[in-house]
């Protein structure tokens, strides 16, 4: 499927990570505000027949929560959200996230919007998938300037899980909390391991130390693409009109 859009490849890739059989089952997945690609990935999993409860924070009409914005955090505190997505203005090689800003605290260089719920969600959700489309040395840094949410915790600090993976516009990394390092799982079509290395500010592992053994990220199947452009887009049109217009070339009825 060479004619799929980058967002479609990313959605299908994240969908596979959501459904990864080696991970605890994702029964209830929450998706944050500015996350149309993860939302598409989760809708795709639903449309493929997996019974996932999907709570989209960004939904205006039909929002899943009735107890205010704290309900997501209360659910997560209890362990009732299985999977959440996080990104970052900076992400480092130990999977620390910076959503605050560059330079001295609180972002004297470039101020990002802020941490949102990351300092809580990262530690209290059993599974986290990191997603940041821009894959460049300014985003993927050796060490973040400020830690909004830490990738690992010392023994004894309550924590339900860690990053499962980091998906970017160039590749998929797996995260290994035991050694606090990423390894390269696959590179997207048109990318090379050397190219990924050059665009990444942190050091990462390549399985077996063999660059040529890193596979290409599988393209979406015909079925997945048809679902993304059809049933998934139908679900997303109300909440993400710009995304649906840009990626699926579909406009909301007036």
């Amino acid at each position: 499927m060479s004619n799929c859009k980058p967002e479609e490849l990313l959605a299908a890739t994240i969908c596979r990570l959501v459904l990864d059989p080696s991970q605890p089952t994702a029964r209830h997945v929450a998706v944050g505000a500015a996350s149309p690609v993860p939302a598409a990935a989760c809708y795709l999993a639903q449309k493929l027949g997996y019974p996932i409860r999907l709570s989209l924070l960004a939904r205006n009409l039909g929002n899943p929560f009735t107890d205010g914005t704290r309900e997501l955090f209360d659910l997560t505190g209890q362990g009732r959200i299985d999977l959440f997505f996080l990104g970052g203005g900076q992400i480092d090689g130990q999977a620390n996230l910076n959503l605050v800003g560059t330079g001295e605290w609180p972002g004297k260089g470039v101020r990002f919007p802020g941490s949102f719920g990351s300092a809580f969600m990262y530690m209290m959700t059993p599974r986290i998938i990191l997603f940041r489309e821009e894959h460049s040395p300014r985003v993927l840094v050796d060490k973040v300037d400020n830690i909004s949410a830490n990738g690992t915790s010392p023994p004894g600090v309550f924590r339900r899980g860690h990053a499962q993976a980091l998906v970017t516009g160039r590749c998929v990394f797996r995260f290994h909390p035991d050694r606090a390092r990423f390894s390269l799982a696959s590179v997207h079509a048109g990318e090379t391991v050397a190219g990924v290395r050059a665009a990444t500010g942190f050091d990462f592992d390549v399985p077996g130390g063999d660059d040529t053994a890193v596979p290409e990220t599988p393209a979406p199947s015909d079925q997945e693409l048809a679902l993304l452009r059809g049933a998934v887009c139908d679900e997303m049109l109300e909440t993400y009109p710009d995304f649906c217009a840009r990626v699926f070339n579909r406009k909301q009825a007036a």
Binding site: G77, S115, S148, S153
Partner: peptide, 13 residues
């Protein structure tokens, strides 16, 4: 009390 946050620079500040 609240879980999480320990290890974040938010807490440090």
């Amino acid at each position: 009390p609240l879980r999480g946050i320990i290890g974040s620079d938010i807490l440090a500040h």
